[in-house]
Design a protein around this nucleic acid. Structure first.
Lengths: 354, 354
DNA sequence: CTGAAAGCGCTTACAG
DNA sequence: CTGAAAGCGCTTACAG
């Protein structure tokens, strides 16, 4: 839509058609566009009088700066890209909410894209976000290499979760998965369980390995020998938890407690147990990890390790905001803690499987 | 970053610093920027030779058009705004995934914003999306008035779900909530239940009212008198389903089946029932609505009405794509259907509550 | 303190 | 078919 130089002053009525531009505000306030821009951005000191006139014009016209133009001209778009893995993940969804809330408070908006646990897709996401001129990028775990992350941090601030990574312009937030799993195992052991099965998560996932290590450490601390026959392989979703439990049961190796590397698998495990007429917790105690909101309403309510998903997102966003202001973030995630509900109890001597 | 007219030709090496611009491509191909733009957009017929040269230059330089500039200049940003209510909703999350997938196929990206079931927040979302120059807006249900939606459709294509609304440049996609609820009730009645309680959803929510109507219609068809004492008020989340069930139980009004207006409330109901030592389905059959992915793994697996969330999103996006091409969408959502799992069964004569 | 001007990277009438 | 130019709505050196 070229050829529309504002030869004749645009209708500066509040309800003129088309959005109000900075130009119009400048005109209404009797100053130059530069001045309006400076006031908007707090870029320079401006005389009281002009500032007032401009503020009034802005209010009167209901002017809202166009982020697109802003991004093109100045580089800042007031948006931050968020690479998540799946837009409908029950765990990360809460983190997205945390990001949204925290960013909103500072006038930024998130741009959510899904990497589907695939490094090359995540790389495409980052290219896309960069082409949309986001001011920074938050990467929720994922499979990108640390090197790739450091690389993008050379041109854009990045905050990553699920890693311990230190680099200029890059902050990472890591939850103590090891400690969480250790606590879960300790909880079960302290209840008196000696035979504690484990359903591991996807082994390509860093969290999965940490949780397995935590399980082993918990066992060791309780002087329970590690039995590889008691660990099943899962994929972090319900179905896999159900299947792994069935396989564990089929080995006829006995166990009185089962710790799944996340709640989704624990829920699947509960169903498998019920299908074999094993009661939770009377016959088998079940422990999850993550503390999804639904876990509180499962039958029975699931004991688990609280994983602060909302804070994860919120802190990641706060860290990004710091980086954007040129400050150094110093945020730490809450420590894991046991949420004991009704799916865990002391083993019953006369249990069906003991 | 003014004052950098390309007096000296920019380094057109593929790995020159900064992103490759259309200018650079034009230069490398020996044509004008206009021509490159036309080829990119298929806006005009261009001679074979030039087209080839440009295509090669694009490939060589790895040029990717800047959507921000594109949006400013031409109006199209290849992005569509999506007003959802909460970024972590278990039901709408799946719809977001459908939108993402469908849009991606056409080279568009979604911009997700949350309205939190609040008309004024939703209005802010729409302003924000418009200021970001999205090409169209998808509104997932929400509380905006039909008039407001029609109004925004005057300047931007809009697709809405959860309404039956016809207007120029506006398409709406509505799931048959009434029929779904009728089917659910029929399912219960055909199993032999005569006393069917109902937990309604938030009455400001249009779906909630349709589902209540469907319940009543189902009752009527089965010649079961409607008993207002048997309907509890819920808020569409687990907690409210649990509480409503407890209240229902406290009235000591007997019922052998319970139909909740969504799965989340049904899950809460199951827990409440279990707490009172009532077994599902032996003592009380429980039916949900939505068919969330977790419902398949609850204990017992929940019978429900399948609500095609993924298709809801996918079709909404497809409809938007149609509108954007100037075509008339003609998409219809799949009909509701009963998914009978293990939480429903014929009433037992000797049931604790019958 | 403040304005005029150039520029961000594209698109699209306008003229050949 | 194709180029030069103006414009999208801002920002920011450059000069007062």
């Amino acid at each position: 839509m070229p050829r529309r130089r504002t030869a004749s002053p645009p209708v500066s009525a509040p309800s003129g058609d088309g959005p109000v531009t900075l130009q119009m505000v400048a005109q209404a306030a009797g100053v130059s566009a530069s001045t309006v821009s400076r006031i908007l951005n707090g870029t320079a000191v401006v005389s009281q009088g002009k500032k007032q006139a401009v503020d009034e014009a802005i209010a009167l016209l209901g002017f809202v700066p166009n982020p697109v133009a802003r991004g093109l001209a100045g580089g800042r778009t007031l948006s931050v890209g968020v690479v998540t893995q799946s837009i409908d993940s029950p765990f990360y969804g809460v983190a997205l909410r945390g990001i949204e809330d925290e960013l909103d408070r500072a006038g930024y908006s998130p741009l959510f894209v899904s990497g589907h646990w695939n490094a090359s897709e995540e790389a495409r996401c980052i290219d896309m976000l960069r082409s949309r001129r986001v001011d920074g990028i938050i990467v929720l775990t994922g499979r990108l290499s640390d090197a790739a992350l450091k690389h993008t941090a050379r041109s854009l601030p990045v905050v990553a979760t699920g890693r311990k990574l230190r680099a200029p312009n890059l902050y990472s937030l890591d939850f103590d998965n090891f400690e969480g799993a250790r606590l879960a195992t300790e909880h079960l052991a302290s209840l008196g369980h000696q035979r504690i099965a484990f359903i591991a998560g996807n082994s390509e996932h860093p969290d999965a390995n940490e949780r397995l290590r935590g399980y082993r450490a918990g066992l060791e601390a309780a002087c329970i020998p590690f039995d590889p026959e008691l660990v099943g392989a899962g994929l972090f979703h319900e179905e896999s938890g159900m299947l792994a439990t069935e396989r564990l049961l089929d080995t006829r190796r006995r166990f009185t407690a089962l710790f799944a590397a996340n709640d989704q698998m624990a829920l699947g495990a509960c169903l498998a147990l019920q299908r074999r007429s094993l009661r939770v917790p009377q016959d088998v105690s079940v422990m999850g990890f993550d503390d999804l909101s639904i876990s509180r309403y499962s039958v029975p309510p699931l004991s688990t390790i609280h994983h602060p998903a909302y804070e994860l997102g919120q802190y990641a966003a706060a860290a990004m905001l710091c980086l954007l202001r040129g400050e150094k973030p110093a945020l730490r995630l809450p420590e894991p803690r046991v949420v004991a509900r009704e799916s865990t109890a002391p083993p019953v001597a006369a249990s069906a499987r003991s």
